[in-house]
Design a protein around this nucleic acid. Structure first.
Length: 506
RNA sequence: GGGCCGCUAGCUCAAUUGGCAGAGCUACGGACUUUUAAUCCGCAGGUUCUGGGUUCGAGUCCCAGGCGGCCCA
């Protein structure tokens, strides 16, 4: 342990600090100088704010009890009227309790110290009888106060919204000041719990697969790379857990899920974060239909568990219904209908390119294969207009190298994307388990990489070896947890992540 | 990657045509024993994101950069 000289050494140079910060440091020094603690190791807390609110909420105006409590909380309001001071304490959930400090009860010196040294934002301990003020505010009639932890920086004003940037950069302040920020933390925890409990009820096992991978595969995305000193080799942060989860299924973990972080070295905007939480699940002897039903239930159960309803209220007040059986459309069918001509897996690249030009979609011609063109056309003509929860089914084979070919339609794969309010919430497959076909798909990806497609999936020999041991027919799904929170609240991704990545301020 | 908008006191925001940089809350000093964003009196607080330039004079105009937001690709 280091010595405690830092606690007793003189205050650091304070001349250039803003006034309010300097003043608070001086108050800390004053508290220490008179022999009190500014940061005591513990305090005789007997009740939480919530316990007092629950236990004594019945008290009428001016009614007092002889019950005594020690309570602590963060000071969010201060109202001093000479010989009687009112202070409102807040707990982590936003619950508030008033304390009243009367000169007659705490004494002249203690009240003077209180007025001199307690600021908005401090953690404060009070001890005293529980009662109700004349105006009916549940209160602790303090016979003693102690500093629980002195705040050296002022809190923002609690009556104005913090700027969006300040909320993200100083989330701890946001959590103190804004109820919606506190709610999101609890909502997210509730969703995680709901998802896990749902999986457990269904007999799925939760596993954790590697974050550091020698080949980043399982999705079409660019990885972050890093370096391992001991082996002097390049490693990648994972872009998806898919290949490892499939290895688990090969080994007999037949119903398996993982909720964990993925990292994609791409842009960041209101619906993309470079690191994001994702749930993936695989079910042996399931397919994309069973896994779709599972996904619908995961979302609807989560909504019911955390909101009590599948009807969610968006920030503009609109009510959006996640309930019922979700619509199912096919990619080729809905695209054909939207543009008024039949598009099939046989439609040539030249014709698709013409259609793309007409729609003013620009694609690098080197990468413009049939599958990419169909998906781009679909997004433009159909996807952008989707609003109600919808499964979009049966994708082109080129863009889904890990998905089984459709059981009855040549050139398509058994994959769905789930769209909610126009954004992609999740995806599901009938998994490709034929190792020979899987190798051909990887080779096709390698050819795409060779012509400059940076998102193309690299060949993973280790994965192919596992597949050659034989994976049972399976359904698999993936869903962004942050996006699920977006679907349940209508908020942007950075509101759903407690500490999203932000660039340092210049 | 491109376009547009923003960055001013601890927080939220003003500042006319380029002419003394302001308000509310907070802070600080004072009054007040039932307040509810307490009230009243008084008084401080600034690298106007950074660096250049134009000008007698720049928060404001020009150039470069940083950070953020929105739209587009």
């Amino acid at each position: 342990m280091t010595s405690e000289t830092t606690a007793t050494s003189p205050a650091p140079e304070t001349d250039d600090l803003p006034e309010q910060t300097r003043v608070r440091r001086e108050k800390r020094e004053r508290i220490l100088a008179r022999g009190d603690a500014a940061y005591p190791v513990n305090l005789p807390v007997t009740h939480t704010i919530a316990q007092i609110r629950e236990g004594y909420g019945y008290l009428g105006d001016g009614e007092e009890t002889d019950d005594v409590a020690g309570v602590a909380g963060r000071v969010v309001f201060l109202r001093n009227t000479g010989k009687l001071c009112f202070v409102t304490l807040q707990d982590g959930e936003g619950g508030r309790l008033q304390a009243m400090l009367s000169q007659k009860v705490v004494g002249e010196e203690a009240l003077a110290n209180f007025k001199a040294d307690v600021d908005l934002g401090d953690h404060l301990f009070v001890h005293g009888r529980i009662g109700s003020s004349r105006r009916g505010e549940l209160s602790v009639f303090a016979d003693e106060w102690r500093m629980a932890a002195k705040a050296l920086r002022p809190l923002p004003v609690l009556h104005k919204e913090l700027s969006e940037e300040a909320r993200v950069r100083q989330r701890y302040v946001d959590l103190i000041a804004r109820p919606a920020a506190r709610d999101m933390v609890r909502l997210r925890a509730g969703v995680m719990r709901s998802l896990r409990e749902n999986f457990h009820r269904r007999g799925f096992l939760e596993v954790e697969t590697p974050m550091l991978q020698t080949v980043a595969s399982g999705a079409s995305a660019r990885p972050f790379s890093t370096h391992m000193n001991a082996y002097d080799m390049e490693l990648f942060l994972r872009i998806a857990p898919e290949l490892f989860l499939k290895k688990a299924v090969v080994g007999g973990v037949e119903k398996v899920f993982e909720i964990n972080r993925n990292f994609r070295n791409e842009g960041a905007d209101s619906s993309h974060s470079p690191e994001f939480a994702m749930i993936e699940a695989y079910e042996a002897y399931g397919d994309y239909d069973t896994i779709g039903a599972l996904t619908q239930d995961l979302v609807q159960t989560a909504a019911n568990d955390v909101l009590g309803s599948t009807v969610v209220t968006l920030p503009d007040g609109e009510e959006y219904d996640l309930g019922g059986e979700w619509a199912q459309i096919t990619m080729y069918g809905s695209l054909s209908e939207a543009i008024g001509e039949e598009i099939t897996p046989e439609t040539g690249v030249e014709h698709l390119t013409k259609l793309a030009d007409k729609a003013e979609i620009s694609l690098d011609p080197k990468k413009a294969n049939h599958g990419k063109l169909v998906e781009e056309l679909w997004e433009h003509h159909v996807g952008d207009g989707l609003y109600a929860p919808t499964f979009v089914r049966d994708f082109p084979v080129e863009t889904s190298p890990l998905t089984r070919e459709h059981r009855s339609i040549s050139g398509q794969v058994e994959k769905w994307d789930l769209y909610v309010r126009g954004f992609e919430l999740g995806t599901g497959y009938s998994e490709l388990v034929d190792p020979v076909v899987q190798r051909q798909r990887f080779e096709q990806q390698a050819r795409m990489a060779a012509v400059g497609d940076e998102d193309a999936m690299p060949i993973d020999e280790d994965f192919l070896t596992a597949m050659e041991i034989a994976m049972p027919p399976s359904g698999g799904m993936g869903m962004g947890v942050d996006r699920l929170l977006m679907a349940l609240t209508g908020l942007g991704i950075r509101e759903t992540i407690l500490f999203p990545l932000v660039k340092p301020q210049g």
